[in-house]
Design a protein around this nucleic acid. Structure first.
Lengths: 107, 107
DNA sequence: ACCATACGCAAGTCCAGACTTGCCTGTCAA
DNA sequence: TTGACAGGCAAGTCTGGACTTGCGTATGGT
């Protein structure tokens, strides 16, 4: 498929998909089953294998994940470059330490 | 409401809301009606006033838009700081010019 | 007082998309 | 070949959320 960059924004709108990106950021080249078990153990997420597979497809569509087949395995790799479009679209001012502003809710 | 930063990711997943952010990035302090007409003229989007109002509420929830009441007017202001969480969560490598990678689909 | 303006609230409709279920294909090892 | 394993495909369910409709509430002008 020619990368029309199937909506990066929509891709990262889903918590499970964000967790998948987190996992891949920590360790590249994981398989579908690897990611399934890591989601369960580290994120308390227990979607079915097919659900995860569909999420990975969305991420791949968005260009955020690239894959490499090897025998019966399919390895997944994170590609953060599409995220650059966000930073470029709405430039963020430099961080101001004493600025009581919302922080993200991650563990 | 205490800013739990009501999902910044979900907020920017919607095309109309992204257009609203674009408008506010270009000109701060616009009212609901201002934004409605600009959406129509510049983005070919014609949602009803209520739809836009609801979108703005979502953006405000996410901390991406702050508001200031003045008489019967309510002015909206863009705040990109919550977007910093995205850049920090998945660091983007420095730009490599000869790198045939997806670009965004904006006009 | 009156009316237009600027906006909010609440209930209802409707569809994209997240998730499941069931079955199928391909790969490797014994 | 047989079985286990890694993954894909397709159809169906169901819920969140985008959008509309209709009415209500302030504010400001004349």
């Amino acid at each position: 498929m020619v990368p029309g960059v199937g909506d990066v924004f929509r891709a990262i709108a889903e918590p499970t998909r964000r967790a998948l990106l987190d996992e891949l950021a920590e360790r590249d080249g994981q398989t579908l089953f690897d990611l399934c078990s890591r989601l369960a153990v580290k994120h308390d997420l227990t979607p079915t294998r097919q659900a995860v597979s569909q999420h990975l497809a969305v991420l791949e569509d968005a260009g955020l994940v690239s894959t490499r087949r090897e025998g019966r395995y399919k390895f997944h790799r994170l590609d953060t470059r599409p995220l650059r479009a966000i930073a470029e679209r709405w430039p963020v001012p430099p961080d101001d330490p004493d600025d009581p502003e919302p922080r993200e809710d991650r563990p």
